[in-house]
Every structure is written in C-alpha cells, then in structure tokens.
Design a protein around this nucleic acid. Structure first.
Length: 422
RNA sequence: GCGAUCGUAGCUCAGUUGGUUAGAGCGCCGGUUUGUGGUACCGGAGGUCGCGGGUUCGAACCCCGUCGAUCGCCCCA
C-alpha cells in the first residue's frame, strides 16, 4: 500500500466476504421476524441535535459524558452522531405526532457511533437492529418484545445464550433501592475497588455487576430490589414473567442486572452467552448480545407527555460472530470461453441466463487455455464451455451435484441457441 | 483514558548470535503439458522490512519515539 493512501478511521470496519454474508443474514432474518410480529419499519436520521441524546440518555452516563461524536455545524449548532436508536425514535414520536398510532411498534437498523477504544465485538461505528413498542403500558408489550427477541435468536441458529431478566421497579421503587444501596456501600467504601468508589457517587447500581473480587464480597449481601418494590411494580414483573413462561421463552432472574442508561424503569434484560459456552468464547470479553428494557420516563425528559414504552437493541456484529460461517451462495452457471473467437457467444449465453433469473458468471479473460480451470474453481452447479476444435465450434457441459432447481429450464434455454454435446 | 502483544510481497508467514543483491507457499499474469480436462512444470510482475531518529564498519533484527492493528480494563450492542 502506498504511504500516500489515507487509512480508514480507527474503529470503523470494511466488512467483506464471509463476514459480510453473516451480517446480511442477521439483517435479513431480523426483517423477516419483525414482519411476523407486525413491527413497522422506520428510517431515522443518523444525527440529531446533541440535546436529544444528552437529555434522554442522561448527562452523567458514559455514553453522553465521554463517548459521543459531537460537532458544530456551519450554523453553530451542536449536533451528534447517534450513539443509540431509542432517543432519536422518541424524538420522532413527539415531533411527528405519532401518538395517533399508539401503541406503535417500530423496528429499524443501521449504524451507530461511540467514541471508544475498539476491541473484539466493539467498534466506533457499529450496527444495531432495534425494536420498540411506544405507548403501551401493559406487561404484555414487554412479553411480546422479548418473545420476538427470543425467536430471532433461534432463527439465527444461535444457542448457548440466555435471557437474563430483572426489574428496576417504578421510579419510587428504584429511588428507594438506590438510596439503600448507597448507604450499604458507603459503610464499606474504603474496602471497595477504586472504580466502585467512584461509581458510588456516579452510578451506585453499577457496583452490583463489578467484576472486582473486592467488591463481590459486599455485593452478595447488598439490599435487593425485591424488598423495595411497590405492589404495582411487583405485580407488573410477575405478569411479565408469567407471560414469558406462557410464550415458552426461557429466562433467568438476574437480581444485579442494571442497565447503564438513566431512562430504564421496570423491566431490564440482556441476552448473555452462558459461561463456558462456544458463544461466550466467540464474543471475547463482550457479553451482551441483545439488551433493553422499559423506559417510561424518557418521553418526559424530551418535553413530551408521559408515555410508557419498551425496547431493545442488538449488535449486528456480535450476532454475526455467533451465526457462523456463511459462504457466498453457490454459483448456478459458469460459462467459459476457451477460444477468443467464442467470447461473444459466451457473453451472450451469460446474458440469457441472467435475464432468465439464473446466477451466472463469465470466464473469458486471461490465457484461453486456463479459462476452463478457472471456471471449474468457481464450483458452479453447471459449467458450459465454448471452444473451437479442429475448426469446429464446440459446446460442452459439465453438471455437478446437487443440481439446481430449474436445471431443465436452463438446458432448454441454452439448447435453443447452441447444440449441446454431453 | 490506562495496560499487554504485534507491524516483512495482494494474503499467510520464514528470515540463525546484527553480516553480500530480503525468501517460501497461496493468489495474479504469461508460456508449455494435459484435451472432457479442477493436473504438472517453467517463467514474470509485485517489498524504500509501518514511519522517524539513534547505536554500529554494517540494522528486517538492538535502543528511543511515533503511527497503526489486535486483545484486555472502564463502559457498552
């Protein structure tokens, strides 16, 4: 590579080959499943006014305080490349009067941006699929959303991943629990890890899933959310779990699962690879493959009326790492021109096949005597060769197993123009 | 932001305690062989050894810096 060639931006990816096929498979499967659940497709802007994210996600979160790609446009307005979908969708809901469609089920996918150090399963420009139900207060909405996530993972063929489920309660429950946690950990502050001492001020809930052994001792006997749940919050969670059981969605309770963003209430969940599973090793140190929850307070933070909502998002790259190798689709027909004077015929044949809906590839460059071998390496279901031998135009056909559907049709089409010799 | 490992041909990698003009396989291009055949052989193109400085008679190799990649911490999808 010339030193004159600009390099790609750190943390961006040029996805190609098997990785690109796996990526496309994830998106295609998502599109199919979201139609099954009647989620409507939305397309969203890639950037928004910065305040859309800072107000919705929370000023003190890492995402807002240090990971946003923000810049001023020519009018001096602060804009930000979306670090997530939910805030932008909430803004669109309010801006466009989508209340008229409530309860509204929407789905989207695309690129997101976060300024972080890249590592396995983690990029500065990454991609997510996303599903939201807005304007639905009932636990059935949570159940439907989770059932869709569960079915998606199954249809992707992903195993060894389990739904971890928790409730953060309503606003009052969450605040009371938070206060109790702060009190509990403040008593042993000096013995906590440095990170957790900081978390005590910024985000005490996060101490619960600290990996540091110094913290784990105190996490075990920390106050549990269950003791602070209001009757309504408890009934809501019970309805979600029994709904999941009825829908056949396997789940496990994760009392210390909290989600990083400020707007979550009630249901919070993540799909996480089982420890020691193949999925876990494929993902490196990234664990969450799909995560989300209920965000009943978010619309108000953007100046809208209180609107209950639930949603989730999943990293396409992470899912793609779990779906395994997906090669290119098999070439149906390879056409070789083994003589320069047959190149026109070969090109014509390829055009005919393509117009009839067959995938076809032409091999008519480089040394004529090597074109057959090149065509052979394409491993097509059918190989047709044009040549001239002893002054006679010849056509040969090689078929390999398994045969393609419509094989007879392809042969007939070819036979209309050239005699076949087998 | 912090830490560890790594940068040699388009790709995967050799390269001895520092010692002539830097190598292989694959791929690419050409030629020969085979002639219903994924063969074999021959040849060719392609590298300021990431970049900059230092040590040395001499650096791909040692030292410093820098850029990049990978993996981990934090956090997250």
């Amino acid at each position: 590579m010339s030193k004159n060639t600009p390099q790609a931006i750190r943390g961006t990816q040029d996805i190609f080959g098997a990785d690109a096929e796996a990526f496309a498979f994830v998106v295609e499967t998502f599109e199919r499943v979201r139609r099954l659940y009647r989620f409507r497709r939305v397309e969203m802007p890639v950037f928004e006014k910065t305040e859309v994210f800072s107000r919705a996600i929370g000023e003190t979160t890492d995402v807002v305080s240090k990971e946003m790609y923000s810049f001023e446009d020519r009018g001096g307005e602060s804009l930000t490349l979306r670090p997530e979908f939910t805030a932008g969708i909430a803004r669109a809901y309010l801006t466009n009067g989508w209340q008229q469609h409530a309860p509204l089920k929407v789905a989207t996918h695309g690129a997101l941006f976060r300024y972080e150090r890249p590592q396995k399963g983690r990029y500065r420009q990454f991609h997510q699929i996303d599903a939201e139900i807005i304007g639905a207060a009932e636990p059935q909405a949570d159940v439907e959303l989770l059932a869709m996530a569960d079915q998606l993972l199954k249809e992707l063929g992903i195993t060894g991943v389990t739904l971890h489920l928790n409730t953060l309660g309503d606003a009052d429950s969450r605040d009371a629990w938070r206060a109790a946690l702060v009190e509990h950990f403040r008593g042993v502050k000096d013995e906590l890890s440095e990170d957790s001492q900081e978390r005590l001020e910024k985000n005490p809930l996060r101490i619960l899933d600290s990996k540091d052994p110094r913290d784990k001792r105190f996490v075990a006997d920390a106050p549990k959310i269950d003791a602070y749940l209001s009757d309504e919050a408890r009934a809501f969670f019970d309805a979600v779990t029994s709904g999941l059981d009825a829908a056949g969605v396997k789940w496990q309770r994760a009392e210390s699962l909290v989600r990083g963003l400020d707007y979550y209430r009630h249901t919070a969940f993540e799909f996480i690879p089982d420890e020691g599973s193949e999925a876990a090793s494929k993902l490196g140190s990234q664990s969450t493959v799909l995560g989300g929850g209920r965000y009943d307070g978010l619309m108000e933070s953007l100046g809208g009326a209180a609107t209950p909502a639930v949603g989730w998002a999943a990293g396409i790259e992470r899912l793609a790492m779990l779906v395994g190798e997906r090669g290119d689709e098999r070439l149906e027909i390879a056409v070789a021109a083994e003589n320069r004077d047959r190149e026109a015929d070969a090109a014509k044949a390829v055009a005919l096949f393509r117009q009839a809906g067959f995938s076809a590839e032409l091999f008519a460059t480089g040394s004529p005597r090597k074109r057959y071998d090149k065509a052979r390496k394409a491993e097509a279901a059918m190989l047709i060769s044009f040549d001239i031998r002893d002054g006679q135009k010849t056509h040969s056909l090689l078929q390999t197993d398994p045969a393609i559907p419509r094989e007879a049709e392809a042969l007939q089409l070819f036979g209309k123009h050239w005699p076949i010799v087998i």
